[in-house]
Simulated assay, not measured.
Amino acid sequence: MSRNIRFEKFVPAHASAVAGWTQTVHESSMWSGRAEHPFREETVLSWRQDPDSQAHILSVSGTAAAYGELWLDSGNREAEVARIIVSPAARGQGLGVHLVHHLTALAEEAGYPGIYMRVPPGNSAALRCYTKAGFRPVDEESAASWNRSQPVEYVWLRHEPAHAATLAFTL
């Protein structure tokens, strides 16, 4: 059975569903850096205030199933893929990889050659997903430099299109 998957701009009507996808304080913290559970709809909506941030969802058969953001740094021509989360009912189906592919393609089409991600330490599921989507760790010197001003020592990744897995979906 095949399902219709669509990449769409996030709209406020999606906020309640997205806020409900975290299941624990730990999961909220890994996703957003906030130790907040249940996660608040207002928090998700507040992220839209940054003009350099673009939020998107993947919908499956008309239902929001994954959320992610693209943060654009026009001065450095760099983008960061961020806040990726998949609804609990849709996990394990490759939707996270699918969403990351869409977000990186959007950044590339907009002329951002450097595309990065940061992953909290210990988030092995996220690291597997992003590796399948073509991300690889940055060099140790860059990671150390970028982590100096961060609250945790993130694993920093850079998109390398030659390493992206080919997607074949029959959902």
Rank of each mutant, 00 (worst) to 15 (best):
A133L: 07
H102Y: 01
M117R: 11
V86M: 11
I5V: 15
A126D: 07
H98T: 15
F169L: 15
F169V: 15
E153V: 09
A13E: 12
D52M: 08
S74W: 10
V44E: 13
S61E: 10
R118K: 15
R91C: 02
N4W: 06
I115C: 02
F135K: 06
S87P: 10
G33W: 02
T131W: 05
N76Y: 06
G96T: 15
A165K: 14
D139L: 06
S32E: 11
A55K: 01
P137T: 06
W156D: 03
R77I: 00
G114C: 01
T170L: 15
L45K: 05
A165M: 12
T63E: 14
A110I: 14
E109A: 14
A125C: 00
S124E: 15
G75K: 07
A19W: 01
A79T: 03
A90P: 05
E160I: 02
W71I: 14
A35V: 11
R34E: 15
N4R: 13
R91I: 08
H102W: 00
K132P: 00
V60P: 09
P120K: 14
E78T: 10
Q49W: 03
H56A: 08
R158M: 07
A144G: 09
H163K: 11
E160S: 04
L45N: 01
V11A: 13
L171F: 04
V25A: 13
S46N: 09
Q54C: 09
R3A: 14
Y112A: 04
I84N: 13
A65Y: 02
W47Y: 08
G75I: 10
M1A: 11
S29N: 05
V60N: 14
G68P: 03
G96L: 10
S142L: 03
V97A: 13
Q150M: 14
E108W: 11
W31C: 01
L106Y: 05
Q49G: 01
Y67P: 05
R34H: 15
R136D: 00
A82R: 06
E108H: 12
H37E: 15
S87N: 04
H37I: 12
R3D: 08
A105W: 08
R148M: 03
D139K: 06
S142K: 08
G114E: 10
A35N: 07
S2G: 01
V86Y: 05
K132V: 00
K9D: 14
I115N: 01
S74E: 15
G75R: 13
R118D: 13
I57T: 01
A13P: 09
V119K: 03
W146R: 13
W71P: 01
I57H: 03
A17P: 00
I85P: 11
H56T: 11
T104F: 00
A143L: 08
P121N: 07
I57P: 09
P120T: 13
A168E: 15
G20Q: 08
R91P: 04
A144D: 05
E108Y: 09
G134C: 02
S29D: 08
L72T: 09
E141C: 06
V155Y: 02
N123K: 14
A17L: 07
S59G: 03
R34W: 12
G62R: 11
E8T: 04
Y112K: 10
A13M: 12
A13V: 02
S149A: 14
